[in-house]
Design a protein around this nucleic acid. Structure first.
Length: 272
DNA sequence: GAATACCTGAGC
DNA sequence: GCTCAGGTATTC
């Protein structure tokens, strides 16, 4: 499911609905999604109050406080199909692996493919567990971003997907950003002028912000905190549109495999 | 880089 | 039955 805009959507909802609420129960039905044991997780989180939600790239880090003891920090990554939601009269199906009970308010973690992770970490903002992850794509400045890609020999598509350079873009928003910037997915940094790279950087941020505004993209599984799909799918120009006509020039959108991921681009608008 | 592994479901 | 899927870590 989720790239930066979808994760931001979930983080905003967690902050808005759960801040100040105490975790009174934690039911774990499938412990494979936990980074630590069920006992350690329960011990660290139960009877604590949620008092902060932070997002870095596609990671959500929740701060739980307790009067005397030190705070606990729970880091969540939804990977491909993770969902966090609260629904009235919801009966959990077999894909709900964990349910938080915030003093009578049940919040479910559901994940069809079980790739997602919830783990206790050592910091509420920059856990050592994600020290290898680069700055958030919405915050990284052009100079720093440019310096970290300019010497690389990989195609732009691979560099934009590389969370170590900047965190948050995934397959959908990389394809969309490259299309809007008019850059071919196989183009390398040295094929592009600084002006073109600036365009990629600024367009990527614009796409992410725009998608956040529309509640993110639901392509297959994504659902927001209230179980509703995001509205950005209808704004997608190339992702998932191989074989269709380009909205700008009318020629056929092509599919291509880059960095092990399916990619869509317009051969006319994105010339190598 | 590429291949593989982690999982389940959808679509052909 | 096969291939593919919004992600990432690990191993050549």
């Amino acid at each position: 499911m989720p790239e930066l805009p979808e994760v931001e959507n979930v983080a905003l909802a967690l902050r808005a609905h759960l801040t100040g609420r105490k975790l009174t129960g934690l039911k774990v039905l499938y412990s494979g999604i936990l980074g630590q044991s069920v006992a350690a997780t329960r011990k660290a989180l139960l009877d604590r109050t949620l008092d902060g939600v932070h997002r870095h790239g596609k990671y959500i880090i929740i701060n739980f406080s307790h009067g005397q003891r030190p705070d606990s920090h729970l880091m969540i990554h939804l990977r491909m199909t993770g969902q966090i939601f609260i629904l009235d009269d919801y009966i959990p199906d077999k894909h709900v692996h964990l349910t938080f009970d915030f003093d009578g308010l049940p919040v479910h973690y559901r994940d069809i493919r079980k790739f997602g992770r919830l783990e206790l970490v050592d910091d509420a903002i920059h856990p050592s567990a994600i020290a290898h992850v680069g700055p958030d794509m919405l915050e990284v400045r052009f100079k720093a971003w440019h310096e970290s890609i300019s010497y690389r020999r990989a195609p732009m598509k691979a560099l934009l997907l590389d969370q170590g350079i900047a965190a948050g873009l995934g397959n959908i928003y990389v394809d969309e950003s490259l299309f809007l910037a008019g850059v071919h997915p196989l183009a390398k940094p040295q094929d592009l002028s600084e002006k073109e790279l600036y365009e990629v950087w600024s367009v990527a941020k614009r796409v992410l912000r725009n998608s956040i505004k529309h509640g993110g993209t639901t392509f297959m599984d994504f659902k927001n905190f209230h179980g509703k799909p995001g509205n950005f799918r209808r704004k997608l120009r190339v992702y998932g549109r191989a074989g269709e006509d380009c909205a700008v020039c009318g020629c056929e959108i092509e599919g291509l495999r880059v960095a092990g991921r399916s990619s869509c681009f317009c051969p006319e608008c994105q010339v190598l």
